[in-house]
Amino acid sequence: MRRLFSRRNVVAAGLVFFAVLPFVANPYVIFIGNLALMYILLSVGLNMLLGYAGQLAFAHAALFGVGAYTTGLLKLELDLHYGLALVAGVGLATVTGLAVAMPALRLRGLYLALATVAFAQATLWVFTHWNSVTYGGAGFRVPPLDFEPFTPRPDIGVYALTYVIVLASVPLGWNLLRSRVGRAWVAIRESEVAAESLGIDITRYKAIAYVVSAMYAGTAGGLFAGMLGIVTPESFDLFQVIVHFCMVIVGGLGSIWGGVIGAVGLVGLQEVLRAFRHLQEIAFGGLILFTVLVIPGGAVSLLKRYLPGWKEPLRRTEHDE
């Protein structure tokens, strides 16, 4: 019976579930499913930077925003094909990620945290004040997408696109982490001095971590713009970073599958939290505290402990969990 919930089966079930969803569910459920898929990208990317490379950076929501703004604006102003706009969005988010990485490489721990908090706030300020480009605080509408001849419904089109991208990029991340890059990240996380003495080029691998996670964030941002049909600055504020962090922590820091579980779990939870009304903040804060205090390894650590087949390479050592 326990074998039924091994990782292979759960992932297979998840794949089928998300594949069947658009055919059977109502538009509300489809939208929530799409959000969950998009957040998988975001949280897997963030987990590489945060959980594997150990860089405490708050810039993620800003990069997510750059992806969304670029994609949306290119679609709106130049009427670019959505696919091309998305690629451009990912490109600019990646470049921004690299630009953040340059100074950030010199900083560690809390210095890095503070610098990236400031960067995130400054980016938000640019989104709200650069009126001639970003349309300021009011944001802008993205023209409706067109997925003909595949499907007449744009929401299903974006859903399918997100599904395919997740299908491609989660295994990509998985492989990256099992490669030299992933091992270098973990070495850096555990001790920069030790990593350096092993001949690991710290600067280079840290930069790779920023760039790869920015790519994931940018992709998620571009999809987000297409999904919502509107881009507004408040979607990218620091509260959103906290939500993203929460996904990684609740799922499991330093675990690809943890990121996936966290994203799906938290999107579901946010829907449940609607019922809490005025107690939402209390419930959300309580959840974060509960997780870090009681199950610091996140959901995936419980799965690893009680179910077979959830072991991962390069997992965090026990004393971290």
Binding site: L50, G54, L56, G109, L110, A113, I242, F245, C246, I249, L253, H278, L279, Q280, E281, I282, A283, F284, G285, G286, L287, I288, L289, V292, L293, P296, H319, D320
Partner: peptide
């Protein structure tokens, strides 16, 4: 106290969680 040996990230998250909690209580 319970997280005294935890990494910086965990502590950041924990204090953020605590901040939401008291903000929610104040709003209530």
């Amino acid at each position: 106290r319970p997280l005294i040996k935890a990494p910086a990230l965990t502590m950041v998250l924990a204090t953020v969680g605590f901040s939401f909690l008291i903000k929610g209580v104040a709003r209530f």
